[in-house]
Write a protein that binds this DNA or RNA. Structure first.
Lengths: 159, 159
DNA sequence: CACTAAGTTCAGTATATACTGAACTAACTA
DNA sequence: TAGTTAGTTCAGTATATACTGAACTTAGTG
């Protein structure tokens, strides 16, 4: 339950970052930030309550978010009753991958819009096709990018 | 001011998509969706009020958002008083590019966190370095990706 | 100038969400 | 079994934001 100013600042900034990018509520961001730097890397709900000065109901609901999005995982320590929480490996990586689905979703939508403009002069189509091409490009480029990432990651692990 | 069911549906779905991905409020999304498929491609505030059944104050405030984010632009037609609005070229492309700044922001933050863990065993650093590497990878890969996009776009224009 | 249309601002309403505190349930321990 | 700890749920509060309607400002037109 030791706290220090630099840590507090990091935790707070992390929470603010997550909130301002509307990724997660502030408290969820603070929990995640703390789990990135705490020792040991696993902490109980009670630890979080004490360290972050938040209520246990906040921990409960925010932790549900973090667990659902698979950024944090639960562990049990033998002989200890409380659950512990820690950063889950590859959390963000997996979220990135899942988000690629949004590309196909918006392209499907744009296809609907495109069909409303059938039999129009080409100029009428430009605005919607420009957007569709952007997403088509990403759909094409993302899989190889991911492959490069996987190689990159393996190299880093060996290091 | 002609409206049809398929159009309405597209407009509504576009608004819902924008809202659910918390990109823009629903009405801003509906305006943008309509501007993607309307003819002519430019519409006045009054047109939008009539077509989309929203108030002119909504148009005013949501249009401010769309103009600020440079997804929509104003034009004036000679001899006509009202301003017209239309989809701005490269709008999303530019937003993507600007968002790359977030990568450096979070890496700076992670650097702060990393320094809090100095003089710890390597295992303690894994969780934060894994995340930093993900962003480092994107920072490295994004510029060439953008270059490929620029080439791709030019090819499409020639087509 | 008076009149009309274009456009903004602002107060008010509705709605969603973050967070808390307290009550509750579930599970272990003496 | 009683007592303690872990954890969830839920009602209530605070806050932010979307959207509206009405009042206002600005600019053109007879």
């Amino acid at each position: 339950m030791v706290s220090c100013k630099a840590e507090d600042e990091f935790i707070e900034n992390f929470g603010l970052f997550m909130e301002s990018h509307s990724i997660f509520p502030r408290i969820a961001g603070r929990i995640y930030g703390y789990l990135l730097i705490c020792s040991p890397p696993h902490q109980s709900a009670k630890d979080l309550v004490n360290r972050l000065r938040i209520t246990k109901s906040s921990v409960s609901s925010m932790m549900r978010l973090l667990l659902q999005s698979k950024l944090v995982e639960e562990i049990n320590l033998p002989g200890e009753r409380p659950r512990y929480y820690r950063i889950k490996e590859r959390g963000w990586e997996n979220i990135f991958l899942e988000n690629l689905q949004a590309f196909s979703a918006i392209r499907a939508l744009l296809g609907e819009g495109r069909s409303l403009l059938d039999n129009r002069e080409a100029e009428m189509l430009d605005r919607i096709e420009e957007l569709d091409e952007l997403y088509a490009f990403f759909e094409k480029e993302m899989p190889p990018l991911i492959e490069r990432w996987k190689k990159f990651r393996k190299k880093e692990i060996k290091r």
